[in-house]
């Protein structure tokens, strides 16, 4: 249901496969949209799959794009890594028109990827996938000590936090003093 292209202007996306027409009533052909992430790789996604994303669905529900217009205007998500967007697109396609299962075991185990996915999914407002991801994040600290949690999630200690805050204040003070001095120099 989806295809991936290298760049918006290079190869044209594959035509959507259409289901055989029923004898009773001809089916309305499914509409497709195009999205790309930071890597500019364009993903072709059906409107049905995009229904999972409240953000995109809200946008396109009354749009009435033709195939050409959709192709010419891929939705850019420059703040989402290409591989993460690919995961999101794959998930939306896999769960298109299906009830979501109580658990999803195909989520990334690697911390950075999982956090990136959480943020992307939150941004795209995909509620069910966000629930799975948050469960997976919660599982990461199961049975760990506070020190281990701090290490895994890179949580600064209160002392480190305070030191960073002091440093930031100091820097801001210096910058302000520099600006004042520069302004005084200009005035002379």
């Amino acid at each position: 249901m989806s295809s991936t292209e290298q760049g918006t202007s290079s190869a044209a996306p594959a035509e959507p496969t259409t289901a055989p027409e029923s004898a009773a009533a001809p089916e309305v052909p499914e509409s497709f949209y195009y999205v790309h992430g930071k890597d500019k790789v364009v993903h072709k996604v059906s409107a049905g799959a995009l229904q999972h994303s409240a953000l995109i669905h809200g946008m396109i529900s009354n749009l009435g794009y033709t195939e050409e217009q959709a192709k010419a205007n891929p939705f850019p998500f420059e703040n989402i890594d290409g591989d993460i967007l690919q995961m999101v697109v794959d998930w939306c396609n896999q769960h298109k028109g299906k009830p979501t299962p109580p658990e999803d075991t195909n989520l990334p185990k690697q911390k950075e990827k999982l956090f990136d996915l959480v943020l992307a999914v939150n941004y795209l407002e995909i509620k069910e996938l966000l629930t799975y991801c948050c469960k997976q994040v919660a599982m990461m600290v199961k049975g760990k000590s506070p020190e281990e949690i701090r290490e895994i999630w890179m949580i600064p200690t209160d002392a480190e936090d305070e030191a960073a805050e002091k440093e930031a204040k100091k820097r801001a003070g210096k910058e302000a003093a520099g600006e004042t001095a520069a302004a005084a120099g200009d005035a002379k």
Binding site: K38, F77, V118, N122, W153, M154
Partner: peptide, 18 residues
């Protein structure tokens, strides 16, 4: 959408609601 922030990948960079 395109000018949204590119997030880091630490717990501390996650928004409070997440």
């Amino acid at each position: 959408w395109s000018i949204g922030p590119i997030y880091d990948t630490n717990w501390c960079d996650m928004p409070a609601e997440i």
